[in-house]
Design a protein around this nucleic acid. Structure first.
Length: 258
DNA sequence: ATGACGGTGTGGCACCGA
Protein backbone atom coordinates (compact mmCIF):
# COMPACT_ATOMS: atom_id res chain seq x y z
CA UNK A 1 0.00 0.00 0.00
CA UNK A 2 1.00 3.61 -0.47
CA UNK A 3 0.59 6.15 2.30
CA UNK A 4 1.25 9.87 1.96
CA UNK A 5 1.30 13.05 4.02
CA UNK A 6 0.67 16.56 2.73
CA UNK A 7 0.28 19.86 4.53
CA UNK A 8 -2.06 21.64 2.11
CA UNK A 9 -2.24 25.05 3.82
CA UNK A 10 -6.02 25.45 3.38
CA UNK A 11 -8.02 22.63 1.85
CA UNK A 12 -10.57 25.15 0.60
CA UNK A 13 -7.91 26.65 -1.65
CA UNK A 14 -6.04 23.44 -2.45
CA UNK A 15 -8.89 20.96 -3.06
CA UNK A 16 -8.49 21.04 -6.87
CA UNK A 17 -4.79 20.29 -6.45
CA UNK A 18 -5.52 17.44 -4.02
CA UNK A 19 -7.99 15.93 -6.50
CA UNK A 20 -5.49 16.31 -9.35
CA UNK A 21 -2.72 14.80 -7.26
CA UNK A 22 -4.84 11.82 -6.23
CA UNK A 23 -5.83 11.23 -9.85
CA UNK A 24 -2.13 11.01 -10.74
CA UNK A 25 -1.11 9.34 -7.46
CA UNK A 26 -3.95 7.07 -6.33
CA UNK A 27 -2.41 6.33 -2.93
CA UNK A 28 -4.27 4.11 -0.49
CA UNK A 29 -4.02 6.61 2.35
CA UNK A 30 -3.52 10.39 2.26
CA UNK A 31 -3.04 12.29 5.52
CA UNK A 32 -3.68 16.02 5.29
CA UNK A 33 -2.73 18.85 7.64
CA UNK A 34 -3.64 22.53 7.91
CA UNK A 35 -7.12 22.11 6.51
CA UNK A 36 -8.09 25.48 7.99
CA UNK A 37 -11.76 24.58 7.83
CA UNK A 38 -14.42 23.09 10.08
CA UNK A 39 -15.79 19.60 9.48
CA UNK A 40 -19.06 20.95 8.11
CA UNK A 41 -17.07 22.58 5.30
CA UNK A 42 -14.94 19.50 4.57
CA UNK A 43 -15.31 18.48 0.89
CA UNK A 44 -16.54 15.00 1.75
CA UNK A 45 -18.59 14.47 -1.41
CA UNK A 46 -15.74 15.30 -3.79
CA UNK A 47 -13.40 12.89 -2.02
CA UNK A 48 -15.94 10.10 -1.63
CA UNK A 49 -16.70 10.44 -5.32
CA UNK A 50 -13.11 9.43 -6.14
CA UNK A 51 -13.16 6.54 -3.72
CA UNK A 52 -11.91 7.85 -0.39
CA UNK A 53 -13.40 7.49 3.05
CA UNK A 54 -12.51 10.37 5.32
CA UNK A 55 -11.94 10.80 9.02
CA UNK A 56 -11.81 14.53 9.74
CA UNK A 57 -10.87 16.77 12.63
CA UNK A 58 -11.17 20.34 11.48
CA UNK A 59 -11.08 23.77 13.03
CA UNK A 60 -11.78 27.29 11.89
CA UNK A 61 -8.88 29.33 10.46
CA UNK A 62 -5.97 27.25 11.78
CA UNK A 63 -4.83 23.63 12.04
CA UNK A 64 -7.19 20.79 11.09
CA UNK A 65 -6.22 17.26 10.01
CA UNK A 66 -7.83 14.42 8.07
CA UNK A 67 -7.15 10.84 7.01
CA UNK A 68 -8.36 9.80 3.54
CA UNK A 69 -8.41 6.07 2.84
CA UNK A 70 -9.58 3.72 0.11
CA UNK A 71 -9.99 0.93 2.68
CA UNK A 72 -12.36 1.27 5.63
CA UNK A 73 -11.32 3.43 8.59
CA UNK A 74 -12.03 2.33 12.15
CA UNK A 75 -11.41 3.33 15.77
CA UNK A 76 -10.95 7.04 15.06
CA UNK A 77 -9.44 9.12 17.86
CA UNK A 78 -9.22 12.91 17.73
CA UNK A 79 -6.36 14.77 19.41
CA UNK A 80 -4.19 13.42 22.21
CA UNK A 81 -6.02 11.66 24.98
CA UNK A 82 -5.36 13.18 28.39
CA UNK A 83 -3.94 16.38 26.94
CA UNK A 84 -6.30 19.34 26.87
CA UNK A 85 -5.86 21.10 23.55
CA UNK A 86 -8.10 23.59 21.80
CA UNK A 87 -6.19 23.04 18.57
CA UNK A 88 -7.10 20.24 16.14
CA UNK A 89 -3.73 18.67 15.45
CA UNK A 90 -3.95 14.89 15.63
CA UNK A 91 -6.23 12.26 14.17
CA UNK A 92 -5.67 8.54 14.56
CA UNK A 93 -7.43 5.66 12.81
CA UNK A 94 -6.98 2.04 11.85
CA UNK A 95 -6.82 1.43 8.12
CA UNK A 96 -8.06 -2.01 7.13
CA UNK A 97 -5.42 -2.66 4.48
CA UNK A 98 -5.38 -5.86 2.44
CA UNK A 99 -2.02 -6.76 3.95
CA UNK A 100 -3.42 -6.31 7.45
CA UNK A 101 -4.63 -3.43 9.63
CA UNK A 102 -2.34 -0.43 10.07
CA UNK A 103 -2.73 2.13 12.84
CA UNK A 104 -2.22 5.59 11.34
CA UNK A 105 -1.40 8.61 13.52
CA UNK A 106 -1.63 11.81 11.46
CA UNK A 107 -0.22 14.86 13.27
CA UNK A 108 0.25 18.54 12.61
CA UNK A 109 2.99 19.33 15.11
CA UNK A 110 3.12 22.70 16.82
CA UNK A 111 5.28 25.27 15.01
CA UNK A 112 6.72 26.89 18.13
CA UNK A 113 7.63 30.20 16.49
CA UNK A 114 10.77 30.95 18.50
CA UNK A 115 12.77 29.20 21.21
CA UNK A 116 11.92 30.72 24.58
CA UNK A 117 8.44 31.84 23.51
CA UNK A 118 5.16 30.68 25.02
CA UNK A 119 4.47 28.89 21.76
CA UNK A 120 7.75 27.02 22.04
CA UNK A 121 6.85 25.94 25.56
CA UNK A 122 3.50 24.72 24.21
CA UNK A 123 5.38 22.80 21.51
CA UNK A 124 7.45 21.03 24.17
CA UNK A 125 4.39 20.13 26.27
CA UNK A 126 2.54 18.96 23.17
CA UNK A 127 5.50 16.80 22.13
CA UNK A 128 5.62 15.20 25.58
CA UNK A 129 1.94 14.35 25.33
CA UNK A 130 2.21 13.07 21.78
CA UNK A 131 5.07 10.78 22.69
CA UNK A 132 3.05 9.24 25.53
CA UNK A 133 0.11 8.80 23.19
CA UNK A 134 2.20 7.16 20.46
CA UNK A 135 3.81 4.86 23.01
CA UNK A 136 0.38 3.66 24.12
CA UNK A 137 -0.80 3.29 20.51
CA UNK A 138 2.29 1.25 19.67
CA UNK A 139 1.71 -1.07 22.59
CA UNK A 140 -1.80 -1.76 21.32
CA UNK A 141 -0.99 -1.64 17.58
CA UNK A 142 2.47 -2.91 16.60
CA UNK A 143 1.79 -2.07 12.94
CA UNK A 144 1.81 1.71 13.20
CA UNK A 145 2.68 4.73 11.07
CA UNK A 146 3.23 8.18 12.59
CA UNK A 147 3.27 10.80 9.86
CA UNK A 148 2.56 14.43 9.19
CA UNK A 149 4.08 17.88 9.42
CA UNK A 150 6.52 17.51 12.33
CA UNK A 151 7.88 21.06 12.16
CA UNK A 152 11.26 19.59 13.07
CA UNK A 153 14.28 19.22 10.79
CA UNK A 154 15.82 16.15 12.44
CA UNK A 155 19.40 16.59 11.24
CA UNK A 156 21.62 19.25 9.70
CA UNK A 157 21.22 17.63 6.29
CA UNK A 158 17.48 18.32 6.55
CA UNK A 159 18.03 22.09 6.36
CA UNK A 160 19.25 24.35 3.55
CA UNK A 161 21.30 26.37 6.06
CA UNK A 162 22.09 24.32 9.16
CA UNK A 163 24.85 26.68 10.28
CA UNK A 164 23.03 29.97 9.81
CA UNK A 165 19.87 28.51 11.33
CA UNK A 166 21.54 26.68 14.23
CA UNK A 167 19.28 26.59 17.31
CA UNK A 168 16.52 28.51 15.52
CA UNK A 169 13.00 27.12 15.27
CA UNK A 170 12.84 23.61 13.73
CA UNK A 171 16.58 23.23 14.37
CA UNK A 172 16.89 23.38 18.16
CA UNK A 173 18.52 20.73 20.29
CA UNK A 174 15.26 20.35 22.24
CA UNK A 175 13.14 19.73 19.14
CA UNK A 176 15.66 17.25 17.76
CA UNK A 177 15.73 15.43 21.11
CA UNK A 178 11.95 15.10 20.87
CA UNK A 179 12.23 13.70 17.36
CA UNK A 180 14.82 11.20 18.60
CA UNK A 181 12.54 10.27 21.52
CA UNK A 182 9.86 9.31 19.00
CA UNK A 183 12.41 7.22 17.11
CA UNK A 184 13.42 5.63 20.40
CA UNK A 185 9.87 4.37 20.88
CA UNK A 186 10.71 1.97 18.08
CA UNK A 187 9.99 4.02 14.98
CA UNK A 188 12.07 4.47 11.83
CA UNK A 189 12.23 7.44 9.46
CA UNK A 190 11.09 5.78 6.23
CA UNK A 191 12.80 8.42 4.11
CA UNK A 192 16.22 7.48 5.46
CA UNK A 193 15.76 3.80 4.74
CA UNK A 194 16.81 4.65 1.18
CA UNK A 195 19.53 6.63 -0.56
CA UNK A 196 18.22 10.14 -1.18
CA UNK A 197 19.49 13.16 -3.09
CA UNK A 198 21.41 15.76 -1.10
CA UNK A 199 19.34 18.77 -0.09
CA UNK A 200 16.04 16.88 -0.09
CA UNK A 201 13.35 19.01 1.49
CA UNK A 202 9.57 18.95 1.94
CA UNK A 203 8.88 22.63 2.64
CA UNK A 204 10.08 25.84 1.03
CA UNK A 205 9.28 29.39 2.09
CA UNK A 206 6.92 31.21 -0.23
CA UNK A 207 9.19 34.27 0.01
CA UNK A 208 12.49 35.08 -1.59
CA UNK A 209 12.14 32.42 -4.33
CA UNK A 210 12.61 29.74 -1.68
CA UNK A 211 11.57 26.84 -3.89
CA UNK A 212 13.42 28.02 -6.97
CA UNK A 213 16.60 28.32 -4.89
CA UNK A 214 15.84 25.09 -3.00
CA UNK A 215 16.04 26.94 0.29
CA UNK A 216 13.93 24.43 2.18
CA UNK A 217 13.59 22.15 5.16
CA UNK A 218 12.66 18.48 5.49
CA UNK A 219 10.02 18.71 8.19
CA UNK A 220 7.31 16.38 6.87
CA UNK A 221 7.99 12.80 7.88
CA UNK A 222 6.70 9.24 7.76
CA UNK A 223 7.83 7.10 10.69
CA UNK A 224 7.07 3.38 10.65
CA UNK A 225 7.11 0.84 13.47
CA UNK A 226 9.58 -2.05 13.52
CA UNK A 227 6.89 -4.47 12.37
CA UNK A 228 6.42 -2.44 9.19
CA UNK A 229 10.04 -1.59 8.36
CA UNK A 230 10.68 -4.77 6.32
CA UNK A 231 7.71 -3.98 4.09
CA UNK A 232 8.77 -0.44 3.15
CA UNK A 233 10.05 -0.43 -0.43
CA UNK A 234 10.25 3.31 -1.16
CA UNK A 235 9.86 6.79 0.33
CA UNK A 236 9.97 9.95 -1.76
CA UNK A 237 9.08 13.62 -1.77
CA UNK A 238 6.90 14.64 -4.71
CA UNK A 239 8.04 18.15 -5.60
CA UNK A 240 5.66 18.42 -8.54
CA UNK A 241 2.75 20.07 -6.66
CA UNK A 242 5.12 22.76 -5.35
CA UNK A 243 5.43 23.89 -8.98
CA UNK A 244 1.67 24.41 -9.33
CA UNK A 245 0.09 27.79 -9.52
CA UNK A 246 -0.96 28.74 -5.97
CA UNK A 247 0.96 25.85 -4.40
CA UNK A 248 1.04 24.81 -0.79
CA UNK A 249 4.42 25.61 0.73
CA UNK A 250 4.74 21.88 1.54
CA UNK A 251 5.17 18.96 -0.86
CA UNK A 252 3.66 15.49 -0.35
CA UNK A 253 5.83 12.71 1.07
CA UNK A 254 4.90 9.19 -0.04
CA UNK A 255 5.89 5.81 1.39
CA UNK A 256 5.29 2.49 -0.33
CA UNK A 257 4.67 -0.60 1.81
CA UNK A 258 4.60 -4.04 0.24
C1' DA B 1 16.72 44.02 12.88
C1' DT B 2 13.12 43.60 9.41
C1' DG B 3 10.51 41.78 5.65
C1' DA B 4 9.90 39.01 1.91
C1' DC B 5 4.54 35.35 0.55
C1' DG B 6 0.19 33.37 1.27
C1' DG B 7 -4.22 32.16 3.91
C1' DT B 8 -7.85 33.66 7.11
C1' DG B 9 -10.91 36.83 9.16
C1' DT B 10 -11.82 41.25 9.63
C1' DG B 11 -12.43 45.65 8.17
C1' DG B 12 -9.18 49.10 5.25
C1' DC B 13 -5.25 45.70 8.50
C1' DA B 14 -3.41 41.99 12.12
C1' DC B 15 -2.10 37.42 12.98
C1' DC B 16 0.03 33.19 11.89
C1' DG B 17 2.90 29.99 9.50
C1' DA B 18 8.08 27.98 9.12
Amino acid sequence: MQIATWNVNSLAVRLPQVLDWLAANPVDVLCLQELKLTDDKFPLDALQAIGYQCATFGQKTYNGVAILSRAPLADVVRNIGGFEDEQSRVITATVDAASGPVRVVNAYFVNGQEPGSDKFAYKMRWLDALRARVQAELAAHPRLVLLGDFNIAPEDRDSFDPVGLRETIHHTTEERAHFQALIDLGLTDAYRLFPQPDKSFSWWDYRMLGFQKNRGLRIDHILVSAALVPSVTACTVDRAPRKNKQPSDHAPVVATLA
